[in-house]
Each structure stands twice: as structure tokens, then as C-alpha cells.
Amino acid sequence: MRKILILGGTRFFGKRLVERLLQDSVNDVTILTRGETSDTFGDHVHRIHADRFQANELAQAVGDTLWDVVFDNICYSPDEADQARRIFDGKTKRYILTSSLSVYDFSEEALTEDIFDPETYPIRHGGRNDFTYQEGKRLAEAVFMQQATFPVATVRFPIVLGIDDYTRRLHFHIEHVRNELPIGIPNPEAQISFIRSDEAADFLYWLGCSSTMAGPFNACSDGTVRIKDILTMIEEETEKLAIIQNQAADEHMSPFGIEHSWFMDTTKAQSAGYKFLNLNNWLPELVSSLNKTYEE
């Protein structure tokens, strides 16, 4: 059996990852949870209860178990990374850290993994409130890559979308167009990457369980989309015009409202054998599906 631990496996793509793992009978899956979010996995998974952000609780919950793979979807700071790399020292054969497109600055060119090198990035310590999201993720990667004694792969995801997106970022745009509310978008021409929640889970599974590769990997659907093209899709579905403004009140600023393009190159993962979905095939379908939920 392959013993797998998931930190952050009760919602969104973490939940999708559990579902994907359970499709393979060789996987013995354990979820670390505080017990605040219910799940539907029943006795198909094991559960250990602890707050991932409290080092003593995490260490006690993990105990002396040896894991084949640990998936960490909820690490946001160098201190959390440092706690984990100490706790799992000698207790895991492989560690998959969910990171982010946010480790990169904006660029009009496709971003490749070597643009940010966590193995040479100067480490500073602190909690998630001490850094921006971008800097927290950069430093978390740096701690694992420079100081972990076990193999680590980091997955740099863009914004993850799906019917099950609890952050409701695509929902925001559909609701605003349907309700004829203004949407603040600084640069409608900016290009952006996305990945679907089930695709994110499938990539994590592939990297953690079907490969032995370490280091950073970009993971996003093939292709890019301009922000204004997303709104065009929504306009076609709702039969209403989007009210686009460069500036708007905070509650009307788009979660996709980037000032410059921000998208990734996935040549590294594809060269290793992974095939991503085509963004322009699934994004219109997702917009249509979400819009129908409002009509129903």
C-alpha cells in the first residue's frame, strides 16, 4: 500500500485530490483536518485531527508514521515550511508543496520555472502575517528546497476555477454582469492562466504518485485568455453587457483585475509526460454551467 497524507483535503482541489487518490486501491489515504469542515469520504479515508498551523499539534498528530507521499496544500509562510520540514524529517519519502503563480512578477512573456529559483532565494523567517502572499510562497519554497532532507516538488498553480470554487472568483463576474453592476478591471487586455480544480488535483496526483521528480513545476491549462474575453463569454451567456471600469469601489474590483499579463509556460511538465487540458475548451463550458445555476 502507498501511505499518503494530505494537509488540506476537505475542500476545492484538495477534496478533488482525495477523490482522485481513492480511485486507485493501492493508496491508503489520510487527511489531516481540524474537524471544522465535513467531508463525504466516510470510512474510505483515515483522519487525524490537528491544526496544521500549530507545530506541536502537527507533530503529535503525525507521530512516527512513515509516509510515501505528503501533499501540503496549505503552507503559506517560511515558518510553516520550517515546521513541516522538521516534523517530516525521516517520516516521508516525498513531499508535494502547492505553491503559486504568485511567486512570479507580472510579465508580457510566458513565465518559466527558472525565473524564480527557490534554491538561491535568501531565507527570512516569519509567519503569514509578516509577508505578502507572494513573498510567503517564495520563502516557503526556499525553506523546503534549501533545508528539507527529503525530496520536494513544488507546484505553481495559477487561479484555480471550478463549480466548487468556494472563493467564487468567476462567480463574482457572472453576478456582476447579471446584476448590471460595474466591474473594476485595470487592464482588460491582460492575458492570464487558469487551471480547473479537477485538473489541479490530477496534476498533483501525477507528480506525487506517478513520478519521482523534484523541484518547481508550473501547472496550468494550455492557452491563455484576456480578461475582456472572459467577460465576452459571460455577456453571451447572460445576454447582458458588462460594465467595465478602470477603477471601481473595492467591492466591485475584479479578482482577475491584474494590471499586466501573468501567465506560465508548462514545457517542463509537458516534456515529462503530462498533458494539460485546453483552457479555451473548458472555460466557456464552465461559464455556461455557472450561469445556469443562477437561472435555476
Rank of each mutant, 00 (worst) to 15 (best):
V69L: 07
P118V: 13
P118I: 14
L161D: 02
P216G: 11
P255V: 06
P284A: 00
G9F: 08
G9Y: 03
G273K: 09
E199Y: 09
F13S: 13
N278A: 14
G42V: 13
T10S: 13
S271R: 15
T132Y: 03
N179Q: 15
G208S: 04
R20T: 14
W206K: 06
L5Y: 04
R2K: 14
E189H: 12
V177A: 06
E135R: 12
F276N: 04
E239I: 01
G273Y: 06
Q134R: 15
L290F: 02
F71L: 00
A61C: 05
E36N: 14
S38W: 05
F12N: 09
P216K: 01
S102H: 12
V29A: 11
A81N: 05
A110F: 11
C220S: 15
E259W: 08
Q191V: 07
T33E: 13
R94G: 02
R156S: 00
N280I: 12
L170N: 09
T10Y: 04
T212R: 09
G126Q: 13
C209Y: 04
C209L: 15
H49D: 00
S102L: 00
E36K: 15
D165G: 07
L101R: 05
D229S: 12
Q146L: 00
W262G: 08
S271E: 10
I123M: 11
R128H: 03
L17C: 08
E19D: 09
E296I: 07
E57L: 06
L204M: 15
Q134T: 07
V103P: 07
P255D: 03
H44W: 03
F53K: 14
K268T: 08
Q134Y: 06
I192G: 02
A201M: 10
R86G: 04
P255I: 04
G90C: 10
G63L: 01
R156F: 05
S254D: 11
P78D: 06
L21T: 02
L139V: 13
Y133L: 09
I87E: 07
P182W: 01
H252E: 10
K137P: 00
T37E: 13
A110I: 12
Q146H: 03
P118S: 13
